[in-house]
């Protein structure tokens, strides 16, 4: 279980998180929606310990990770797989080395044959067989993202955080990514947190959806609750209309 309590975060003078509370139960898929720049990615980075809150706490399986020393934090971070917005593939390594990186650094597998099998399996799951020796610079944006996804799932983590998994991916592949997220949950019991503004994807994969606005969670609910919400802010966002309480200048 992941629990964020009263999380505040400020960058220079800009307050991004203003007392955010959110609980993600074990085994569920939580989708976080909200406007670009409202702090969704920042929230994800707090969950995995890449950022520390100015105030408040982030608990992963009842351990407060915001006060942990680096080495202990590193052992908690092994529970996570993270798909970055821009994939964040290592430029100096080919696809296979990228995917197997976590397996090697965490010594999860030592047998080279086993590692290669896992790499092939992960690539098959994201529909990219046979590109093991390709360098990231030779891949398209969507392909990079899928390799990033393969890397995130390679070590079979307990939690997977997806930062905009369907952005820049074609509609057919986007549906395949949704299936993959659902499969990870159903087959492996993975807890997923998905940041997106793709509402189709959100409704498909989510057990619960949380809408972020002005640095806090505006509403949390099941996809049906969010679809039929009475909250004008959430209503405007999910309907995708320019008119309403959220103005174009208001980044949330």
């Amino acid at each position: 279980m992941i629990k964020l309590t009263g999380v505040y975060k400020k960058f220079n003078s800009q307050e991004v998180l203003r007392g955010l509370d959110l609980t993600i139960n074990a085994g569920e898929t939580m989708v976080i929606i909200g406007r670009s720049g409202c702090g969704k990615s920042v929230t994800l980075k707090h969950i995995v310990g890449l950022m520390k809150p100015d105030k408040g706490s982030v608990e992963v399986d009842d351990v407060n990770i915001s006060t942990l020393p680096p080495l202990e934090l590193q052992s908690i971070q092994k529970k996570f797989g993270f798909l970055f917005q821009g994939a964040a593939l290592f430029d100096s390594m080919n696809v296979s080395d990228n995917i197997s990186f976590g397996l090697r650094t965490q010594h999860l597998m030592n047998d080279e044959k086993q590692i290669q099998e896992r790499v092939t399996e992960c690539l098959r799951l994201v529909g990219l067989e046979g590109i093991e020796r390709t360098m990231p610079s030779e891949l398209s944006g969507g392909m990079r993202k899928r390799v990033g996804l393969a890397r995130a799932i390679a070590a079979k983590p307990q939690y997977i955080l997806y930062d905009e998994p369907t952005t820049g991916v074609d509609p057919i592949m986007s549906d395949a990514v949704n299936d993959l997220i659902i499969n990870m949950k159903e087959k492996l019991g993975v807890t997923s947190i998905v940041v997106t503004h793709d509402m189709t994807s959100a409704y498909t994969v989510a057990d619960r959806i949380a809408m972020m606005y002005h640095g806090v969670i505006q509403q949390v609910g099941t996809p049906d609750e969010i679809k039929n919400t009475a909250d004008p802010v959430v209503k405007q966002f999910v309907a995708g209309t320019a008119k309403g309480p959220i103005t174009l200048e208001d980044r949330g």
């Binding site: 996570f80 821009g86 593939l89």
Partner: peptide
């Protein structure tokens, strides 16, 4: 610096490498 701005350094942390 390029690794930092393309989040590759963050990725190292999440893959268990300091």
């Amino acid at each position: 610096g390029t690794m930092r701005v393309t989040e590759q350094i963050d990725a190292l942390y999440t893959l268990g490498a300091n």
